[in-house]
């Protein structure tokens, strides 16, 4: 049996940063890249199933350029069996729908029994990719999964979802399915040095969208459901440092309260 784990090399923006010249993203010079936090948990869920059962293959997949290979190396170092990276420049700045379409094509090729994705990405936070992937594949899905009970080969999985107000929903999902995993479902492992070293010698399968049977119209700009118009820092809030003697400060606070509250 096979579990497909889609992962993302997420951007961690530095304290002081600049935007890209086109104003639609952060300048990559001010970004640190690391495996999306949620994907640590979905990978761990897959690895725990692998360890508890014989004959499970865990395949990590990402859609991204050369810089995203580190995310896959991390997965391999922790214990994923294989890794696949799909890229074409036409995918740059793609929205979650396009990424999901590419991942669905990978899933079609790999024919996994289960897809475990992160609930969301730590940088853009659409929470859409995994769910959209299920939609393209016509598979059932469950989002924000905080517990998973699944026996390999079973026709269904029992999952628990986190709802508002501390509520939980226990759900039976038909398999194969796409589950998007929430933080806290497990304690992600760290890679050992042996794992890191061994991961260096495992080849990463690199595929183009073309090889997956995807046309430009499936993944190009016209295929996107949304386009980033602008990324910007909102104007500063109205915080004000009040200086002066305690009496002056008190007077200023009173004036502000009066101004804001009226009267």
């Amino acid at each position: 049996m096979k579990i497909l784990v889609p992962v993302k090399q997420a951007a961690l923006v530095e304290d002081d940063f600049e935007l890209r010249d086109d104003g639609r993203d952060v300048d990559p010079d001010f970004v640190d890249l690391q495996l999306n936090e949620w994907d640590d948990y979905s990978l761990e869920a897959a690895l725990q199933l692998k360890e508890a059962n014989d004959g499970i293959e865990v395949v990590a997949v990402t859609v991204g350029d050369d810089d995203t290979e580190d995310a896959l190396r991390t997965c391999l170092a922790k214990g994923a069996d294989r890794a696949i990276r799909i890229w074409d420049d036409v995918i740059a700045d793609a929205d979650p729908l396009v990424i999901a379409r590419v991942l669905a094509a990978v899933a079609q090729r790999e024919a996994p029994d289960l897809v475990l994705a992160g609930t969301q990405s730590s940088d853009l936070g659409f929470s859409a990719t995994g769910v959209a992937m299920a939609a393209f594949m016509g598979w059932p899905h469950a989002a924000v999964v905080v517990a998973l009970d699944y026996a390999p080969g079973a026709a269904t999985a029992i999952v628990e979802r986190e709802l508002e107000g501390g509520l939980r929903e226990r759900l039976e999902v038909d398999c194969p399915a796409v589950l998007t995993i929430q933080l806290g479902i497990n304690t992600p492992r760290y890679a050992s040095l042996r794992g890191i070293k061994q991961a260096r010698s495992i080849p990463i399968e690199e595929l183009s969208p073309d090889e997956l049977g995807l046309e430009d119209q499936d993944i190009g700009e016209q295929a996107r459901g949304s386009r980033v118009r602008e990324m910007y820092l909102p104007d500063k809030g109205q915080a004000e440092m009040i200086e002066g003697t305690p009496a002056e400060q008190a007077a200023r606070i009173a004036a502000i309260v009066k101004e804001v509250m009226g009267g």
Binding site: Y190, A191, S192, L193, R194, G195
Partner: peptide
């Protein structure tokens, strides 16, 4: 740890046994 991605600070881990250490790959 950010400067060298292969470095790691793993806190809250179960205590390593001698077997764990020998197999760690260091």
């Amino acid at each position: 740890v950010k400067r060298n991605k292969d470095c790691q600070l793993a806190l809250g881990q179960k205590r390593l046994t001698a077997d764990d250490v020998l197999q760690y790959g260091a």
